[in-house]
């Protein structure tokens, strides 16, 4: 079980490679430019949802991008404590950026 963290906008190679490797037993936390992939009804969001992974968004970065009311309901928004909690559950992190 891997926690993937994605800090790359939807057109980045980081996004492309992350989506390829996400498994249903994994979790994905979007942060930095990665939060734009949570825009509801975007191609990026659809691709992420199709992976079946657990989906999370880092709250401060989502707020900075103006997305708090625009993101898909499939994502759970977490603060830094929530981020830390994810790393307790998932033994390994793969950072995409």
């Amino acid at each position: 079980m891997i926690l993937h963290t994605l800090n790359g906008a939807p057109d980045s190679t980081a996004f492309r490679d992350c989506i390829r490797l996400l498994q249903t037993s994994d979790a994905l936390l979007l942060m930095g430019d990665g939060v734009y992939a949570a825009l509801s009804e975007s191609c990026a969001c659809l691709a992420i949802k199709n992976t079946g992974a657990e989906l999370y968004l880092l709250q401060p970065d989502t707020a900075a991008a103006g997305l708090l009311t625009l993101v898909d309901s499939a994502f759970t928004i977490v603060d830094y404590q929530g981020f830390a909690a994810l790393t307790e559950r998932y033994t390994t992190q793969q950072a995409w950026f």
Binding site: L58, Y80, Q81, A84
Partner: peptide, 26 residues
């Protein structure tokens, strides 16, 4: 940490994460 404080959010995110980890007793 691979990023400088001047380029993007990653460096600051790392700091806030570190604070959260300590707060959770690790």
């Amino acid at each position: 940490v691979l990023s400088s404080p001047c380029s993007g959010q990653a460096c600051a995110t790392a700091l806030h994460f570190a604070q959260a980890v300590i707060h959770r007793g690790h």
